[in-house]
Design a protein around this nucleic acid. Structure first.
Lengths: 334, 334
DNA sequence: CTGAAAGCGCTAACAA
DNA sequence: TTGTTAGCGCTTTCAG
């Protein structure tokens, strides 16, 4: 590896001068700069960033901790983060936490030790207390997708409640009255907030949701299929299904199709997230767009600025809202 | 930040001893080790890995360069790489190349400068010469998804040809004779090899593919829709579509559906890749499973071993093969 | 078994 | 404008 030292020797200058040339800062004579530049090229010198990071104690690395990068939603999150990171001249270091509380914490510590000052964390199960503590230790830590009042300025999150109210109202406006809800079996964060939003909207419009028509399962395609089958087995009539997310909505459509029930003619199905997959199924899903890529980009920017200087607006939080994407899975009931 | 020095001072030993305790190597007395361990805990000391990497000049980081992490296929690739990296106690650093030759090279250099010794590169457009040169510079560089004979031992790739022959033969065996092919407009690597495989299989079975029934478009859902529309417009009859990938296959199904043509009753559609999305569309896609996650894991392992010691079997290459996944989009022709 | 000391490659005062 | 020098935090001989 060619070092700054060798360049200096060959060019007959000091390492400091080479450093100045490399970084383009400080005063350097023109012919001196030209000669050094030439030597750098000839020798194929390349900065050892590890040394720089070590020296300056500031890494241009953004750490990202999500449960599982292979899941479509987190893939999108990572994509957004990477995009902004690259835009800001940083690299993205990713860690899967696999939904384990301990690996979340471990990942964060590992990232810090790697020199990451900026970290984006998607945490569903860690205690708020734990996260608040972590935020004190790591100035560049940003929590994505969860709101904790005590550290509101570190939270980039999403208004599940109003989004699911909007989706519910949309269906009510279409004329639906008999709703079924396919929710996630894990009633933390998102699922809980969304279910609440649906119930609230229904309540406000004077519609009751029968307990029989609220079913839970794993938040994936298979879960959606199972839950919908359960719904069908109960035999209670409904004209609309509100699914926790697109995956479950797709599962619902498949089960409905197998049972000879047409979507949307017989039953409308509403998704959530607007994954790329939502466009793949037939009919294409009407769904709420969860702007996770944009949120991730924002989070990276926020994190980097947090590292630089403490937040100006101590109590500002960062809330994103949904768009309703109309496609083909919802229509008026017969 | 608590350093080894402070621990040493508090414990009344030298930094060398603390280092030995931390790394569990070298001889250290029992009570001495116990005391140091206790102090480490009390002070909350945590290794500064940047310093370690700098000192040892060996990073436990795997770099991954793909065109675009948000695309499902590359998300899967990243997921596999991350999984193996974590298993091996390493971190994954990701870079998007956005299909630009120059950013590929830049990304590699940046990664090397960051201390990455192991790099997994998915490159479609760089010249082979360039990559061969790069491989000489970077001992831990592994090329995924492409075969270059001169550096065969660095290539982890996939047998597109036999896979597409298998898929074609499968449909011929079902009784299909009138084929249409929806291919990618970019006739490099994968698309080229797959198209060749289809043509070869057809030839061997004495079936001719009409030029009219070979169309090209962007390798995504919309491209699949457009290409299929083009096919329909031409008016030539066919009973089977072989699509370049799942995305195009899904697009084909949508266009067919819109035209009132049933899949698979009227026309069978074959995909490629077996993305999670393949299970989302109706009917679910019959497709070839591209084991990209497994390949990525393998590539990481290979890369790491390459860094350690030169390959034992100089001319061994690393070829993966497909599985045919039977789902609902292919059946016998009427 | 333990400590002293050199040095990884780079930057940033401080001098000159 | 340029050079000298002192580290960043850690590991690793080499002595003791």
């Amino acid at each position: 590896m060619v070092t700054i030292k060798e360049v200096a020797k060959v060019a007959g200058v000091s390492t400091a001068t080479v450093s100045r040339v490399v970084n383009g800062q400080g005063k350097v004579g023109d012919q001196c700069r030209a000669r050094v530049t030439k030597i750098i090229k000839e020798l194929g010198y390349r900065t050892n960033h590890v040394a720089v990071i070590h020296r300056k104690n500031e890494a241009k690395m953004i750490g990202l901790v999500t449960p599982k990068i292979s899941m479509a939603f987190f893939g999108l999150l990572a994509a957004g983060a990477e995009e902004m990171a690259r835009e800001l001249g940083a690299n993205l270091l990713i860690c899967n936490s696999l939904y384990e509380v301990e690996s979340e914490i471990n990942a964060i510590h590992a990232l810090v030790a790697q020199g990451c000052q900026s970290i984006i964390l998607h945490s569903e199960y860690s205690e708020s207390e734990q996260l608040i503590k972590l935020c004190k230790e790591v100035p560049g830590l940003v929590i994505i997708n969860r709101f904790i009042p005590e550290i509101s300025e570190r939270c980039v999150w999403f208004d599940n409640n109003s989004a699911s109210q909007a989706c519910t109202n949309y269906m009510i406006d279409k004329g639906h009255r008999d709703f079924a809800v396919v929710s996630s079996i894990y009633q933390n964060g998102d699922p809980c907030a969304r279910l609440l939003g649906v119930k609230q909207a229904l309540l406000l419009r004077g519609i009751t949701l029968s307990d029989d028509l609220l079913v839970e399962a794993g938040a994936n395609i298979d879960g959606g299929m199972d839950a919908t089958q359960e719904l069908l087995d109960k035999g209670k009539p409904f004209t609309a299904i509100i699914a926790f997310n697109d995956l479950m909505a797709i599962g619902a459509i498949h089960t409905l199709h197998k049972a000879g029930i047409r979507v949307p003619e017989d039953v409308s199905v509403f998704g959530f997230d607007d994954l790329p997959m939502a466009k793949a199924c037939l009919p294409q899903l009407t769904t709420m767009n969860y702007p996770i890529e944009g949120m991730a980009k924002y989070a990276v920017e926020l994190s980097l600025s947090l590292v630089k200087d403490a937040p100006k607006h101590a109590k500002q939080t960062h809330l994103f809202v949904a768009d309703l994407i109309e496609r083909g899975s919802v229509t008026e009931p017969k």
